[in-house]
Design a binder for these strands. Structure first.
Lengths: 148, 148
DNA sequence: TCAATCGGTTTCGTTTTGCAACTGGATTGA
DNA sequence: TCAATCCAGTTGCAAAACGAAACCGATTGA
C-alpha cells in the first residue's frame, strides 16, 4: 500500500486542516483539552485509547503547534500538554461538532452533556456562518473562490 | 486487533459526531458536497481517493442520513449523492475547519481558496461561538455541563 | 455496434491500529 | 529506607483499515 498522501501543500484550507486534525483521536483529544485536560494519563483514561496511539497523536499535535508541553502545574516532575494560541483557534471546530451532534445525533428527550457559558450557566447559542451584515448564511448562498 | 469501538452511545455530542464524520475522507467528501459535487466519479477525481474507500464512505454517509442518493439530474441513468437536511447542518463544521486552516496553515502571502458570499463576492466573516448577548466567547469562558 | 465511461466490487499487499507486556523514573507509604 | 505503586511512555504482535490495481456489468457516445 502506498502511504497516506500528505495534504499540506493543498491550496484548500479544509484539506490542510483535515490533514492535521482530521482523525478520531485528535479531535477527541482536542475536545478534552478544551475541557481543561492536560495530563497523559487523564487523556488516556478519558478516551480509552491505546497508550501508543495517544503518544503518537500527542506528539503530532505538538509538532503541529496545536499543543505544547510544559512542566506540570501541580509541582510533580511530569509534564502537561496544553493548547497553544494556534490550538485555541480550533474552538469553533469543536463547538461546531458538538452543536451538530446535539441537534442530530440524540433522540428527542435523550440526555447529553452541554456547553454552557460559565458566567451565566446558559447554553451557548447555535453558531453558524454569517454574512457581512449578520444574516445567517445557507451553504447555497456561498461558494468557494478557487485559486488559479 | 479488536475492532474500533463505536461511540454512538456516548453522552458526549462531540464523540458521536466524530464517530460519524471524524475521518479524513468523510470530511473532504463533505467539503466537496457543500461545493455542489454530487457524482461518484467527480468525488473520486477531486479527492484522489481509492474507489473502494470512496464507495465505503459514501455508503456510510448515506446510512448516517447525511447524504442521500437520487436519480442524476442530468438525465443519465446514474445516481447522485446529495446532502440531506441533516447533512446541511454540518456546514458550520466545514466552515470552521476552513477558517482555521486559512488563518493557521498558510504562510503570509501564500494564496489559498476562499469561501465567499455569492451575492456580494465578499469573504465570509470569521465564525466563532458567541454568548447570549453576542459577545465572543473564549474557551475559558465556557464549560461542559456533564450528564449525571 | 463497439469502444469508452461509469460506478462500483474483489483481491492482495501495506500501513495503521489496538492490546498487552515491558520499562524506567517518580512518588507514596509503611 | 526501601518496596510497592504510579506515571508516561515504548515495544512486539496480531487484527483491521487502507490503497492500488484489476475486474465487472451496465450505460453512454460516436
Amino acid at each position: 500500500m502506498s502511504p497516506r498522501k500528505a495534504l499540506d501543500d493543498e491550496p484548500c484550507p479544509v484539506a490542510r486542516s483535515v490533514d492535521v486534525i482530521g482523525d478520531r483521536w485528535s479531535l477527541l483529544i482536542l475536545r478534552d483539552a478544551f475541557d481543561g485536560m492536560r495530563r497523559f494519563g487523564d487523556f488516556q483514561r478519558s478516551l480509552g485509547v491505546a497508550r501508543n496511539i495517544l503518544s503518537d497523536r500527542l506528539r503530532k499535535l505538538v509538532e503541529a503547534g496545536i499543543l505544547e508541553t510544559r512542566a506540570a502545574s501541580d509541582g510533580t516532575a511530569y509534564q502537561e500538554y496544553v493548547l497553544t494560541i494556534k490550538g485555541e483557534g480550533l474552538f469553533p471546530v469543536v463547538v461546531a461538532l458538538r452543536q451538530w451532534g446535539e441537534r442530530q445525533l440524540f433522540a428527542r428527550g435523550e440526555r447529553h452533556s452541554e456547553l454552557i457559558e460559565k458566567s451565566t450557566g446558559q447554553p451557548i447559542p447555535f453558531m453558524s456562518p454569517k454574512a457581512g451584515d449578520g444574516a445567517e448564511l445557507a451553504p447555497a448562498e456561498t461558494e468557494v473562490r478557487k485559486l488559479r
